[in-house]
Amino acid sequence: MNIFRLVGDLSHLLAILLLLWKIWKTRSCAGVSGKSQIMFGLVYITRYLDLFTNFISIYNTTMKAIFIAVAIATIYLIYFKFKATYDSNHDTFRMEFLIVPVGGLAFLVNHDFTALEILWTFSIYLESVAILPQLFMISKTGEAETITSHYLFALGSYRALYIVNWVYRYYFEGFFDLIAIVAGCVQTILYCDFFYLYVTKVMHGKKLSLPA
């Protein structure tokens, strides 16, 4: 464990708790892409299948359990409890256009052709594009609530910090995982446009609105 990965994990935890809190407090999931949340749920479930079989540390097990629980709770709030506030007209990104290619790629490019490894690879590839429906929804509505933009900033920062963690681990531990690194770079690059808007607008107290 290194500081970059720890701060990255905490940023990730902050992001998903922020979103859950926003939906619960405002009793509305307006502006939130349910499709992205479903894909994040899939990411955690396929990645943390070894939750009960492969004990790494208390921290590792606890965080995995929290991520899965919060993801399921968020999906529940969006599609059940506050279903009336779900903006399905703007959440129209076709998930199958992401899940099918990612599933195929996981079969073709992986470290080990075993079920667990292919599911882990699928999870890594899916996570890199899971935010697309959310970014697409914001581009369609032309704006995002400030709390939603904080959620996105924390979520994007987590994987950016993981990239720094991978550089650190390469130089100090000689460890690297090309699949995670390439997918992590793609994932972070997808946030660049948002990061620019966040820094130039939200940090100056303005609302995040995309140029019409």
Partner: peptide, 10 residues
């Protein structure tokens, strides 16, 4: 290929 402990990241 990476050994098993490599999957220590979230």
């Amino acid at each position: 290929p990476l050994d098993e402990e490599a999957k220590d990241e979230l």
